[in-house]
Nucleic acid binder design. Structure first.
Length: 623
RNA sequence: GGGGCGUUCGUCUAGCGGCCCAGGACACCGCCCUCUCAAGGCGGAGAUCAGGGGUUCGAAUCCCCUACGCCCUACCA
């Protein structure tokens, strides 16, 4: 019967968990899950000088975030506790002693300086440094060890490598690999501080913890012969070995800080989905079939076999990860998306806002690549619209007048069509599309304008859906706000009123009854403003009129009647004036009045927004 | 210097002697869709399979050599 699969992830807590390390953990974990085996986490904290506070927690958090669970290890314990090597020193010390007793290891008293000298000398010699007893300790040590003082704090224990023959490993990924023993050096197994080196500790623990397969990064391949010799000297049955390809930066060098984000925590903070990162990482060195890339975890587990692991190192391709993250985001249920976006929204959300976010989420879903874009991409849904440049309102090929006209029309039409409070996007769409037909604007221009007015941006999710989610109140307010913004722009202001003085001219002279009635509706302040404008703008009235004529559509019952009037008053065309005037009725005077009222903006004392809603304009018309 | 591993489009990869003058994906380019941005659809460009020798009727696939890259060469893991 085949031995049970027991694999392990053995990180050393020397810093933030690395993408490369975590990928190793992932492969081990997948292998365990695939084979119904156990996945063990063991902390290799044998280097006291490199310990980093919080590193163990960070490693464990990284695993938990990716949903990689462990059957034995820190926090969960297990039959081979403890799982921190610093708490198992006795085990290693005993084994080291046993090896010394057996003659497989010896005490070495060489100073670091001597060692360094030896090392340099051996460089050009073609042999491994102090191999086969390069220093004298091996030869004299065995005999001399007996007489040495116990606990000498400068001595280390070195393993005595065989001086001939080869050590061979049958790597599950790389096949047979062999090394000549004479080229191997006598490596240290127990340091002078009493801690084991990696080599002794892994072998001891992998054996004691009954590890069946050692899957680790390729950088460990060169030390495998040491481990094998250790197993043999200790009389242990070695496990299977599989050396995983490394993950490198774009320069093909071992991944390091200068390659950008390498710590798994950074990916979490940048809004990568753990399932996306996991899926992506597994593809770095493993493939299902060469064409299936995005796949559920269960599929990965079901098909995860060592024979499909690649041999060569892989560059970590951020672009592809980003793409895959987008894929996973799009696959999320809207509520789930909202839930995951929440931590990335830079404001506390109350219950209502959380619901609101739930409605926003589907809109931004397919244009979100990372969760950390959440704040940015939803900003205009919350609170007031931040200042935006009114110049962005008018789309290509439009000027402020076009924008003003279209905005006013949209405002009126939406206001009228959704009075009952039903503000779904279909309704808004049909309403705005009918309005669009009355304007000489392309759809792109009209909706582009409205988009800026509603969101403050040139780019957003589809307009009508966005408006629906924003809600009637916000939309209406923002449209009028946009109008106001435009009017506040000095240069635009002038243009927008170009036609008014001319109109005033005609009002004063014309005899058309409707126009007279209209002038009666003008309140004194407004009148004054118009006169002021007239003076200022006299020189340009001609072109202004032409401008308005362009926007004219003749249709009864149209709020844009005001524009028509303006447009229909070219000089010497009283007939036309009459024609328009004739079409006016009470309802349109309202529009006229609204329009004229905006003039008051010219005079700061008559802020439009301060007065809006206050005026009982109907009074002037007598109902 | 020594030892080891690796080498298929820019990147991740498929390929285990004929199905491959090499397939998929990301990125890139173009078109379509379209109210913007995305998403999506369609199409394009992109690899003399590191180079050279063999073996074979036939090689990206097997063997050898060379080159290049990377890893190890610490009382670090």
């Amino acid at each position: 019967m085949a031995t049970a699969v027991r694999v392990r992830y053995a990180p050393s807590p020397t810093g933030q968990p690395h993408i490369g390390n975590i990928r190793t953990a992932l492969f081990n974990w997948l292998f365990a899950r695939r084979n119904g085996g156990k996945f063990i986490v063991r902390i290799e904290d044998t280097d006291q000088t490199r310990l980093t506070p919080g590193a163990v927690e960070a490693i464990l958090d990284g695993l938990r975030w990716l949903n990689i669970d462990w059957d034995e290890g820190p926090e969960v314990g297990g039959p081979h506790s403890p799982y921190e090597q610093s708490r198992r020193l006795e085990v290693y010390r005993r084994m080291a002693e046993q090896l010394v007793d057996q003659g497989n290891a010896y005490y070495c008293y060489c100073s670091r300086e001597e060692l360094e000298r030896l090392r340099r000398a051996s460089r050009g010699a073609g042999a491994a440094p102090y191999s086969g007893g390069g220093c004298n300790c091996r030869r004299m040590g065995r005999a001399g060890a007996v007489g040495e003082p116990e606990g000498d704090d400068s001595r280390v224990v070195r393993f005595a490598m065989p001086e001939s023959g080869v050590t061979q490993v049958r790597d599950l990924i790389r096949g047979d690999v062999e090394w000549r023993n004479e080229l191997q050096e006598d490596f240290i197994i127990l340091k002078s501080d009493g801690f084991p080196t990696y080599h002794l500790a892994v072998v001891a623990d992998d054996h004691l913890m009954e590890i069946s397969h050692v899957m680790r990064a390729e950088e460990w391949l060169p030390s495998t012969p040491r481990h094998l010799q250790l197993y043999s000297a200790l009389g242990f049955q070695p496990p299977e070995f599989a050396h995983l390809p490394m993950i490198t930066g774009t320069d093909r060098a071992k991944l390091s800080k200068r390659h950008g984000a390498t710590a798994i925590g950074e990916y979490r903070e940048q809004g990568y989905l753990p399932e996306a990162l996991l899926n992506f990482m597994v593809l770095l060195g493993w493939s299902l079939d060469g064409s299936t890339e995005v796949m559920p975890l269960q599929t990965i587990i079901d098909h995860f076999t060592i024979d499909r692991i690649t041999k060569s190192a892989a560059i970590f391709d951020q672009d592809k990860l980003l793409w895959m993250n987008g894929v996973y985001i799009r696959e999320l249920d809207a509520n789930e998306l909202a839930r995951r976006m929440t931590p990335f929204i830079p404001r506390e959300l109350d219950g209502d806002e959380q619901d609101y976010l739930g409605r926003i989420a589907p809109l931004v879903q397919e244009r979100l690549k990372r969760l950390d874009e959440s704040g940015e991409v939803t900003a205009y849904f919350f609170g007031e619209l931040p200042d935006y440049d009114p110049a962005t309102l008018a789309q290509r090929g439009m000027d402020a007048i076009d924008a003003l006209i279209a905005l006013q029309l949209a405002l009126d039409v939406i206001n009228r069509d959704t009075k009952d409070g039903n503000f779904d996007h279909k309704r808004v769409e049909s309403s705005l599309k009918s309005a669009e037909q009355r304007l000489e604007l392309s759809r792109r221009q009209f909706f582009g304008l409205l988009r800026v007015a509603a969101t403050g941006r040139a780019v957003s999710p589809p307009l009508f859906e966005t408006m629906e989610v924003l809600g009637r109140k916000r939309v209406l307010f923002r449209l009028s706000q946009a109008i106001e913004l435009l009017l506040h722009q000095q240069s635009y202001l002038e243009k927008s009123y170009l036609a008014l003085p001319e109109m005033l001219n005609h009002l004063n002279r014309s005899t058309a009854p409707a126009i007279l009635a209209m002038s009666k509706c003008l309140r004194p302040e407004t009148d004054k403003a118009i006169l002021l404008m007239a003076e200022r703008l006299r020189a340009r009235t001609e072109s202004a009129i032409r401008k308005f004529v362009k926007h004219l559509t003749l249709e009864r019952g149209n709020v844009t009647e005001i524009q028509r009037i303006l447009e229909l008053i070219p000089k010497k065309d009283d007939a036309l004036i009459k024609e328009v005037a004739w079409r006016l009725d009470g309802g349109h005077y309202q529009a006229v009045l609204n329009w004229l009222e905006q003039l008051r903006l010219e005079d700061p004392e008559f802020r439009y927004s301060n007065r809006a809603g206050e005026n009982d304009t109907n009074r002037h018309f007598g109902g």
